[in-house]
């Protein structure tokens, strides 16, 4: 008892400091978590969470029988995995190439330019993309026209849509992605390069045998941390760029939940779909953190 009061006397300011932050996450993160009860209810808005009847797993059964649901899950994973792979490969390559630049101001200018798209919202970038890719007057289709290619409706064609999502996402994020890899590159001991040079290794061999191994820990780390994103195909981007004709290739879990829940007010059903996503994501993220800890000794805090 005595030690407890002593502890409290010493530590009370620290508890006090956490109080406002805790209040916010309890209200805006934990209270909504209790709302997942709705997934097991036939939710009626005016009866509320405690008045609506429970229907067990019915919502999940409905979900399994829903005709397009396989498509939705497939699209989500397909787009997300392509984004993860491309989002790893491109920044690493660009970081290595940027690192070869000898003049600091050129390097800095290029960096500033490639960071730019990261800071713009998908609303603005979608507005720009829709304009550029327009089949009638977009500049991109005009350029294809110089090579005799007929205009392509990139955002309205199921064959193109997923790839346009991946390419435009890589375009937006690769510059920002180079930051961690550039930091890793500056951390490589320069004597390793000198030693390799004395052993007769050229620039290419040095990249292969010094640079890449030096970056390996951070590459492994980024890859494992990205496992948690397997069900995040990018709601902001797809919601702003898709339309009914491309639902077949573009509809992902998040857009599906939005349409079912907010637009069609099927709260119980939409919550069930969302819960399924949250649970699977939870498993993936937890596994990725455990792996990151084991492989790269990474700790979140």
């Amino acid at each position: 008892m005595n030690s407890l009061t002593r502890m409290w006397k010493k530590e009370w300011p620290l508890h006090l400091m956490l109080l406002p932050g805790l209040a916010f996450i309890i209200i805006f993160s934990y209270i909504p978590m209790s709302g997942i009860m709705m997934a097991f209810q036939k939710y009626v808005p005016n009866k509320g969470l405690f008045g609506s009847p429970f229907i067990g797993w019915r919502n999940f059964q409905l979900l399994m029988d829903y005709p397009d649901i396989r498509r939705v899950f497939f699209n989500t994973v397909y787009i997300a995995v392509m984004k993860i792979v491309a989002g790893l490969f491109v920044p690493i390559t660009i970081a290595i190439l940027l690192n070869e630049l000898r003049r600091e101001w050129i390097k800095r200018t290029f960096q500033t330019l490639v960071y730019l798209p990261h800071f713009l919202s998908w609303v603005l970038l979608s507005g720009i993309l829709v304009d550029i890719l327009s089949p009638s007057s977009g500049i991109f289709n005009q350029m294809l026209g110089w090579f005799g290619i007929k205009p392509i409706f990139f955002l309205g064609d199921n064959n193109w849509f997923p790839y346009v999502m991946v390419i435009s996402d890589v375009w937006k994020e690769f510059g920002f992605g180079t930051i961690v890899y550039l930091a890793a590159l500056t951390g490589i001991n320069p004597t390793l390069y000198e030693a390799a040079e004395i052993d007769g290794a050229g620039r290419w061999k040095q990249t292969l045998h010094v640079t890449l191994p030096g970056m390996m820990p951070i590459i492994v780390l980024m890859l494992t941390l990205n496992i948690g994103n397997v069900l995040n195909a990018g709601f902001d981007q797809i919601f702003n760029l898709y339309s009914a004709p491309v639902y077949e290739s573009a509809d992902i879990i998040d857009t599906f939940v939005y349409r079912m829940g907010i637009q069609q007010a099927q709260f119980g059903f939409a919550t069930a779909v969302g819960l399924l996503k949250s649970v699977v994501s939870f498993i993936f993220i937890s596994v990725s953190y455990v792996l990151a800890y084991r492989l790269a000794n990474y700790r979140i805090f």
Binding site: S29, M33, Y258, F282, S286
Partner: peptide, 12 residues
């Protein structure tokens, strides 16, 4: 790691 999802957050 985990969140209530779109609908419960909206209703809160």
């Amino acid at each position: 790691l985990f969140n209530g999802g779109l609908i419960p957050t909206y209703l809160t």
